[in-house]
């Protein structure tokens, strides 16, 4: 049994966007804080720390989940993906490009989390219709855009990807 004492720092190791990363964390250290403060992966944003806003959404073993409701020590040997892992160094992926095209972001604070949810949906359900896309997006709060450009962007990309299959 892995038993980690409170108040002490423990080694944590997992893959972040395909690369092995290591650090030390107290058991209570939130994954969102570990990603940002220990690993310097600032792309994951923190908006509420109670699982409601969706800004900190990342993928753990492929599943979009809230980083503020996970502890760093729970990530041992897991595969974590964040917004930094989405695009090639010189470009944007399809969803990112579509969000730019449709003005689906303004301040951009909620955007990384939204991307992580839509990425999973695109992989698992490329045929998702607008209603399904909206259902998934309802786990994210955006205060800037009124969601219009986000929905437009997603609908366009899902249509293209599904069309190619």
């Amino acid at each position: 049994m892995r038993y980690l004492e409170a108040g002490k720092r423990h080694a944590v190791r997992f893959t972040l966007n395909g690369e092995l990363v290591e650090g030390e964390a107290e058991p209570r250290l939130l994954l969102s804080d570990f990603l940002r403060q220990t690993l310097g992966a600032y792309g994951t944003h923190v908006g509420c720390e109670h699982g409601s806003c969706g800004a900190c959404t990342i993928r753990v073993d492929g599943k979009a989940v809230r980083a503020c409701l996970l502890y760093a020590v729970q990530m041992q040997d897991r595969a974590v993906t964040t917004v930094e892992g989405l695009a090639a160094p010189d470009g944007l992926n399809a969803l990112q490009a579509a969000l730019q095209k449709h003005h689906g972001l303004q301040c951009g604070f909620c955007t990384p989390g939204i991307l992580m949810s839509l990425e999973q949906l695109l992989e698992e359900e490329p045929g998702a219709d607008e209603a399904r896309i909206r259902d998934v997006l309802s786990g994210h709060i955006c205060r800037c855009t009124g969601y219009h450009g986000i929905v437009q962007a997603a609908v366009e990309v899902f249509g293209e990807v599904f069309g190619k299959r």
């Binding site: 917004v83 730019q100 990384p112």
Partner: peptide
Amino acid sequence: ARLEDPALLRGGARFAD
């Protein structure tokens, strides 16, 4: 299209925190 967007979309924009 906005010049701000690529950094925001890639997680590279720098906010206060």
